[in-house]
Design a protein around this nucleic acid. Structure first.
Lengths: 237, 237
DNA sequence: CTAATAGTGTCTATTAGACATTATGTG
DNA sequence: CACATAATGTCTAATAGACACTATTAG
């Protein structure tokens, strides 16, 4: 049989396939805490429980998995996040009561202010502080996905400035250091922190400053692809 | 409607779902080169082309995706690899001519001798040198998956001894250094290389030695979980 | 002995940690 | 001015790079 004839005769519906969903662990940083966006499930199964934003791949609308996840995040936040990365794919027969299911889970970072308006217009979406999240029961295996997402971000805090994407477009170095300190759960030396960022030339000085109390702090923006930079030495844990 | 009633009425076949496959980028190290296992496709589409070992999730036989990938790798090598890790998930409407498809791709490492017998009994499986692989046309997006796998392993060579899993159970430090040198494409200082491994106590001295030419080399085994260890400083690229 | 390869000693270079000091805003 | 916070200076500690040196085998 030729490939052409084979493909004409082929019908995907003749073969059983797992359910395929996409989920997003979307983090932001606000009021001194790392937060994750959760959505209240409107439908069975697990109706009423909180879960990660996500849903089924729409084979007509979506060209690929990234389009699915960006579509789902935009539905809840109104905007596309500046950082998105594949986190893990979970697939087994037990995680979803509807049957064998696979979820491709992404992690994304966004500044709180950037999507504040979007969130507040969506009734079922809400930011949850990472601390204390283990006390609430989430749908599916989403508790585990968030745990993996936090661990990944914590690792990145040791050797990159990826956590900067949880901040608004413009931010100060002490603010960024604070994000890293929350992630790592311990104070950092500001001299070490600033030195490595300066040497790698990862941030753009906006020329602006912000005064809260004390000496004004310089406002920086991320340089393009600064999230990709990996310091040769880690911050010590 | 109750959840029970909902689940009883739910039929996954009422909803279109992408095809779901699992693939493995299986590396080994042999005769001074990094090699990847490829399989010749027996069926359409892309019949006759080489591709990664993998295939459809068997919803009856497989409890989860890891079981699928281990089953597929065992079919070709006869054994389960000592290191396996999720690499990436590719999903789009174009990668497979049969329709919207998702592949969950793993990367695995194994010693050449460990599975030599298994490979030689499988007619359609063969090790390919990574160098020169870009000159042959692989099925689907498997060329890209291998590229991602090599890049991941190269990164790991900078801050871990994960590449040791491409070697047999017992190996010498100069052998391991050579694997890292091939991955990084440049010579390394043996003093630096040995020092960090010794200090982190990652290997077990078997008490045995191997003589090829010159002074005999000590044979080591991986300590449990040594692959998880991350040095605080990278080898410089 | 020589050749070859394994393994060590030791100095330098790089980069993080510690912490004191200076700078610049507000009230 | 005092206070608070930002930013810097500078010494120490940890760890990678360079490279000479010693050790142990075969022939």
């Amino acid at each position: 049989m030729s490939e052409k004839a084979f493909l004409e005769a082929y019908n995907p519906k003749d073969h059983d396939s797992p359910l395929v969903t996409v989920d997003a662990v979307l983090f932001t940083f606000h009021e001194g805490a790392l937060k994750v966006l959760l959505v209240e499930r409107a439908n069975h199964p697990d109706r009423g429980k909180w879960c990660l934003p996500g849903g089924f791949v729409d084979m007509q609308a979506d060209e690929n998995l990234e389009e699915t996840v960006i579509r789902k995040v935009k539905e809840k936040t109104g905007v596309a996040p500046p950082y998105i990365d594949q986190l893990a794919t979970m697939g087994n027969s037990k995680r979803d009561k509807r049957g064998w299911s696979v979820t491709v889970c992404y992690t994304a970072l966004i500044g709180y202010q950037v999507c504040e308006a979007g969130i507040s217009t969506v009734q079922d979406a809400q930011w949850f502080d990472i601390a204390g999240l283990d006390r609430i029961s989430l749908a599916f295996d989403h508790q585990e996905l968030i745990r993996i997402g936090v661990e990944r971000l914590r690792q990145k805090a040791l050797y990159s400035i990826v956590p900067a994407y949880t901040l608004p477009d413009k931010f100060t170095l002490p603010e960024l250091q604070h994000v890293h300190e929350v992630l790592l759960g311990k104070p950092l030396q500001k001299k070490s922190f600033r030195r490595r960022i300066e040497q790698a030339d990862l941030l753009i000085d906006t020329g602006q400053q912000r005064t809260e109390r004390g000496r004004p702090a310089t406002l920086y923006r991320m340089r393009k692809h600064s999230g990709d930079h990996r310091f040769v030495a880690n911050l010590r844990e």
